[in-house]
Design a protein around this nucleic acid. Structure first.
Lengths: 335, 335
DNA sequence: TAAAAATATGGTAGCGTTACCAGAACATCG
DNA sequence: CGATGTTCTGGTAACGCTACCATATTTTTA
């Protein structure tokens, strides 16, 4: 892999001149520029961002820390980030904290080591340690999705309280009087804001005494468990407010499991949409590929390749396919 | 931000000794190690990966190039990659090509500039240019999901042909005789393999003459259009084989639009599962946050912050919530 | 026509780290 | 006891690039 100096030598100019050409900075005459560009092409020169970053103290890299990229909500957010970054010649590093403060800390440290130019953070917890850490290292942070106490930062989030208020009002307007909310974990602003909005709506309708708040976590399992608990403790419930999409899904599963119809017996509302394509009546019969394992295996293979512990030849791993039969297939009517 | 030399000076040792301590390499006596570690902690030293990478020629960075991280299939794959990478102290950069060769080329170049240690590539097209480019720059590549012709590489993929064969057989076993396959684009191995498996099953059942192959793209729109086309051209169709999850979703929507029931009138099978939580009978009523725009705005804000074109104070952007009413809410039975 | 400004090019050093080599202190062994 | 190995520490240079400063040439301006 040739470097800038090779190009300079070949083109008969000083290294700095090559630098000017590839960066489009400073003054370079047309003939010189063309000569340099020709050599760049001829030798297949690829500028070294590492060296550039070391000298210029700019890595042109952003980091996005979310709790779980698997949630379509965050996937969508990630695309938004990436499209902007790409358009500005920035690269994005994604990190998943799985709502764990330990993981968040670990990633924060790693990102600081990489000297990322900035971090987009969906905090995994209520405290400001991570943000303070970045600030101490002069790394810009924009907080996303959730408010945080104890620091002032750039922040972008939705008006959860108002949304929850309106969702709850909608239920009340339909005649529901016993409404439970299954929120995420306590201490997370989105969770608490949604509860606040819910409470405000109930209060305005004079339903303060029927308040039913369940704190848990923003995942399906929590939605399932707490919906079960809610229905057991309050058989007269007619509506459930899921704290986010996964919670609602879990709740609905619990309701179905209890033999209850949605919305026949219990209405359900939720925060965070699921992509449109996810809403389909039939359960598809599919051939399932093991995507996760495929990723794992490929990464392991690659790492071994990098470390040189693999022999010359090439590996070809073929994974089995799993067929899952669901309701989308039945006997042919055409016989 | 202190550097290694600051630590060395403060601890009264040579820089290389500090390096040994933080990398756990070579010989360092216990007392020296402790002294250095104390100073590291005291000054809040964060090693500089950039400098390390320049000198050691290892960036500890992998790249994953997929066509669209928005597809749950790739999201899942990405988690697989990341979990392995993280466990090995590697960082992952994700890139979306949107099935565009141009974008793939652009990303490839960018990743080479960053001197990533290796690339996991889901090829956007059939040719081997990108792979050859990486190889020319001595960057390890593992191809994922799709085969490619013209080069030898490490590769991990599923047995699409066999999967398609079995899916098709399953339909045939249920009495279906007129089965259409809506594949992805021609020239992509997964697309063609699935057609091959489909054809083999038909052939073995003596149904060669009823072969109905539609090539398109691996997205919902294509599934929708081609399902329409297929039903129009062959009203007697009793089953559709979707080339991937999105195609199947599009097809089902087309069928519903034509007033056809799944599986009552037409059975549908598909490659690539959708996450379990996506299959739910009721359509949720939700409060929708604008995740994409939130990501965009946050990234723009961050970039401005980095470039210093923003005044001192902090920005707080609050996005509106959109309420989407669907069938999961109805009047309360409890009245 | 002289002075100022714009254009074009280069030299030197340094970003923060580790590779490579060297040497000293100490332990082990025949 | 000298030889050999192990443990510990350091000096020097280099990775590939750009910041900073300097200089030379050409063009513009008063």
């Amino acid at each position: 892999m040739p470097n800038l100096i090779d190009i300079a030598r070949q083109a008969g100019v000083a290294p700095i001149t090559v630098s000017r050409v590839i960066n489009n900075s400073g003054y370079v005459s047309q003939p010189t520029r063309e000569r340099v560009e020709a050599v760049v092409k001829e030798l297949g020169y690829v500028p070294n961002t590492i060296a550039r970053g070391l000298r210029s103290k700019r890595t042109h890299t952003l980091a996005l820390i979310v709790t779980d990229i698997t949630n379509p909500y965050f996937t969508s957010m990630a695309r938004g980030v990436e499209d902007v970054a790409e358009a500005n010649d920035y690269t994005v590093i994604y990190s998943n904290t799985d709502e764990s403060e330990t993981k968040e800390k670990k990633y924060a440290n790693m990102l600081a080591q990489r000297r990322v130019d900035g971090v987009l953070l969906v905090p995994s917890c209520g405290n400001a340690n991570t943000i303070k850490f970045f600030e101490a290292n002069h790394i810009n942070v924009v907080v996303l999705d959730r408010r945080i106490s104890g620091v002032e930062t750039d922040i972008v989030y939705s008006d959860s309280k108002n949304g929850a208020y309106r969702l709850t009002k909608l239920l009340i307007g339909l005649g529901h009087k016993r409404i439970a909310i299954i929120a995420g974990s306590q201490g997370v602003s989105t969770s608490e804001d949604r509860v606040l909005g819910y409470q405000q709506a109930l209060s305005e309708a004079g339903l303060d005494d029927t308040e039913l708040v369940y704190y848990g976590a923003f995942n399906e399992q929590s939605g399932y468990q707490l919906a079960n608990q809610a229905m057991t403790q309050n058989p007269k419930l007619t509506a459930i407010f899921g704290g986010n999409n996964f919670v609602a899904v879990g709740a609905i599963k619990a309701l179905h499991n209890l033999g209850l119809d949605v919305p026949g017996d219990v209405s359900v509302v939720s925060f965070d949409d699921l992509p449109e394509f996810m809403f389909m009546k039939p359960f598809l019969t599919v051939a399932r590929q093991h995507a996760y394992e495929m990723g794992q295996m490929a990464a392991e293979l690659l790492l071994k390749r990098i470390s040189g512990e693999l022999p010359q030849g090439h590996r070809e791993l073929i994974l089995p396919i799993e067929i899952i039969v669901r309701e989308s297939v039945g006997p042919s009517k055409a016989g």
